[in-house]
Design a protein around this nucleic acid. Structure first.
Length: 559
RNA sequence: GCGCCUGUAGCUCAAUAGGAUAGAGCAACGGACUUCUAAUCCGUAGGUUGGGGGUUCGAUUCCCUUCGGGCGCGCCA
């Protein structure tokens, strides 16, 4: 097991700090997490830390420069990867790294291959990510696609960061909306068979309802024509649910998203879990009766008002389902669950988090991530997305139109909490405007060069026999530094739950490669140089494909 | 009215956990193909980070206030 090189340098700095503490020159309580990052400006070195500035908080009045100087006094850089150290006002410690450190990164990447990027910051902690969870009453639209992309990518990021992750879809398969769905399909079925049949008020009017009715006709002919009994209603409800769920599952699969668990709301009520939750809440004194209904005292945990869990008529509310659903999650042993919701549900967060605390779970057991809306732009104009309007665009349509890779990238390229403006014209263009192709093209170029090298019988990735010192150009150093940053980027994406850090990283890396490619040839008359450069681009290719894989975007070998 | 998200270049957005001279792409203008794929590269121009206060060595980032945009405030789901 080789040591993480950035960690190694951090350790050297920390040792200097600990030594200063032992000597009494820095009477510290605790040492904050040491951040070691490449500065924006090259004159500030290869890596930089603000630790002295951080530490100066602990003892006011002490000049950060003095603190930095004390650390430097105790810093042993002989026989390390650090080449030079500098101290700059107001207290930054800047480090220059030996070239050998950079080369060592390449060795590590090559050795680990597809494993490069894996971390262990999760330490096996179990996290559940629940996302999409759309009511099974119609097809997924593009907004759900954004949630799906974010949830799936975040799950992959957490996995590679060392968490045990489960992806779950919650199916709201009971209640009024299911009755309406069944009723709507039943009405269309009968109408298609020539019956005069009233369409339910507030029913689902989309074309897909007619499609389902048509399917039922081909499968069952007129078997249920004109029937109005309970059994028939159940039949329509059930078959509509199954068909729509199947469609949702297919659309997601086509989008590259697969769930570990499809969890049915109905199943919650088969074990009388509601009673269990109510008992617990009562015991903990967060439950009371008022106006004939049962209320949860969510205001005790910051909610604006208390919420009804069982209605006056004895029926549990949707909130009740969600409480026992999350109780179930807790009982399944997750250390933390992340719910990903659309922006229209944000008002629900407080009461859910309050309910969790009322049940006695840790405050951060449930975290909710709110994904902002998507606006589709076509020919410079906004495309309406209401279900009622005719211009409904489904996720399926979008994937057909622009492809899975482009759709996923566009949803992930911006922070999920900013509104996505999805320009269909840009997404469809196979030009430099489209960042997906820009990145994939970098990978395809690398594959193409390696293929050429093979036809020329050039030896590839013979690590021991390559003289990496020949990689001495500025562009090469920049590339290697970027490669070595992958793990830090994944770490940051995992801790902050920000998949878009990886799309940005990919773009930067691709950009550095394209620049390098333009200035230098990989395959030259100089065999030794060629070998070294081939090794470098192989590493770039590996990192590109590893990162694309995390985001669920394919890495084509030729374009 | 209250709550959540948001406001950065003409447009779409970054800015890593409060760090150093706020960066990319597009659009505009000017260049580079006898080349391992030009789906590429180089250059020019573009800013009072909506406004105003505060916190500190330092604020696009945190707090208060104000203005604009989006969304939500059911014994609906």
């Amino acid at each position: 097991m080789s040591i993480d090189l950035t960690t190694e340098i951090k350790e050297i700095l920390l040792e200097a700090i600990r030594k200063s503490k032992r000597e009494g020159r820095l009477p510290l309580q605790d040492i904050p997490e040491l951040l070691l990052v490449p500065p924006k400006n090259k004159v500030h070195g290869d890596l930089s830390t603000n630790i002295a500035l951080q530490l100066s908080r602990q003892f006011k009045g002490k000049n950060p420069l003095e603190i930095a100087q004390i650390i430097l006094d105790n810093l042993e850089i002989e026989d390390t990867m650090i080449n030079k150290v500098d101290l700059v006002s107001p207290g930054f410690i800047n480090l220059w790294v030996k070239e050998d450190w950079l080369y060592q990164n390449l060795r590590e990447i090559l050795k680990k291959g597809e494993e490069f990027g894996k971390l262990n910051i999760g330490k096996g902690k179990r996290i559940q990510v629940e996302f999409v969870s759309v009511n099974p009453t119609g097809p997924l639209h593009v907004g759900h696609g954004k949630c799906a992309a974010v949830g799936d990518a975040l799950s992959n990021i957490l996995k590679i960061a060392g968490y045990k992750v489960e992806k779950e879809y919650y199916i709201n398969d009971q209640g009024r909306q299911m009755d309406l769905l069944g009723g709507s399909v039943q009405a269309r079925y009968n109408q298609l068979l020539g019956e005069s049949w009233n369409f339910p008020e507030d029913g689902y009017k989309g074309e897909y309802i007619k499609d389902i009715a048509q399917e039922i006709i081909s499968e069952y002919q007129d078997k249920y024509q004109g029937k109005k009994d309970e059994e028939t209603r159940e039949f329509f409800k059930e078959i509509a649910l199954q068909k729509i769920l199947k469609g949702i599952e297919e659309d997601l699969k086509e989008f590259g998203v697969e769930f570990d668990v499809w969890f049915s709301e109905r199943s919650l009520y088969q074990e009388n879990k509601l009673q269990e939750a109510i008992e617990l809440l009562k015991e903990r004194d967060f439950l009371y009766q008022k106006d004939g209904a049962l209320w949860v005292k969510t205001t005790a945990f910051g909610d604006e008002k208390d919420r009804v869990i069982v209605r006056e008529n004895g029926m549990p509310t949707y909130f009740a389902s969600d409480i026992i659903y999350h109780q179930n999650k807790y009982q399944r042993g997750f250390n933390q669950v992340i719910d990903i919701w659309g922006a229209d549900h944000h008002g629900y967060i407080k009461r859910m988090k309050a309910a969790m605390q009322a049940l006695g779970y840790p405050e951060d057991f449930l975290e909710v991530l709110i994904v902002q809306f998507v606006t589709l732009i076509k020919d410079g104009k906004e495309v309406g997305m209401s279900t009622r309007g005719g211009e409904f665009i489904t996720l399926h349509d979008l994937v057909q139109e622009v492809g899975k890779d482009v759709a996923r990238y566009f949803f992930l390229m911006r922070s999920y909490d900013s509104h996505t403006e999805f320009d269909l014209n840009v997404a469809k263009s196979q030009s430099m405007e489209n960042p997906v192709y820009y990145i994939q093209y970098a990978y395809a170029r690398i594959c193409s060069i390696i293929k050429n090298a093979k036809t020329l019988n050039l030896p590839i990735t013979d690590l021991e026999k390559v003289n990496l010192n020949l990689l001495d150009k500025e562009e090469e150093f920049e590339l290697i530094k970027k490669l070595s940053l992958l793990k830090e980027t994944i770490k940051s994406a995992a801790i902050n739950w920000k998949p878009h850090l990886l799309t940005n990283y990919l773009y930067d890396l691709a950009s550095l490669f394209h620049k390098y490619y333009t200035v230098y040839r990989i395959i030259t008359d100089d065999l030794e140089l060629t070998k070294a450069r081939l090794l470098l681009i192989e590493c770039v290719g590996l990192v590109l494909s590893n990162t694309l894989k995390i985001l669920g975007i394919s890495a084509p070998e030729r374009m």
